[in-house]
Amino acid sequence: MIKLITGAVVLAGCAALGMFFASGFRRRVQQLVELENVFAQLEFDIDYLSIPLDESFEKAAKNSCGAISEMFLYITDRLRKNRCCDMQMVWKRAIDRSKDDLFLSDDDKRILTDFSKTLGSGNKEKEKNNIKMTLMRLKLAEDEARTAAECNVKMYRGLGILTGVFIVIVLI
């Protein structure tokens, strides 16, 4: 009976571990989609409303959740507290602060820091071009993340269960 319970616990644990790793791929896709929405909103705010970046980022923080929201809250706070801040440095720090909850790859993060390089220093056209380029790169990253998720989610789930089964067999 004890063996049976232990086996079940090990199996469930390994399956959960597999699910946990698999969820990272799904969360990456979700966060990339969330970022795309934020950038689409940002384009609207710049093009039609002409509102300053801190106001737009505050909206972005409200409209998103989790790590993405935290990231934009931090950027808004820094822009308001220190107008002379280095924009790219602020973005790097924001990404770094949320790194435990961000499921983005290094390449995804580079898209964001590249975006921040010239952010806020140009006219509408320049800002719109910068956003369009970023959206395009995010879309490509999203496609790649979806493909990776399709393969890896199943693989990690299966791997989790199989590892569990293997351990149970070895233990028995």
């Binding site: 710049i46 002409s50 801190d54 002379c84 924009m87 220093s121 140009g122 800002e127």
Partner: peptide, 17 residues
């Protein structure tokens, strides 16, 4: 000069065009 200019435009030069 660049930093001061960015700051007076609230880091949003387009908004102060």
């Amino acid at each position: 000069l660049k930093r001061v200019f960015q700051a007076i435009c609230e880091n949003s030069v387009y908004a102060y065009a």
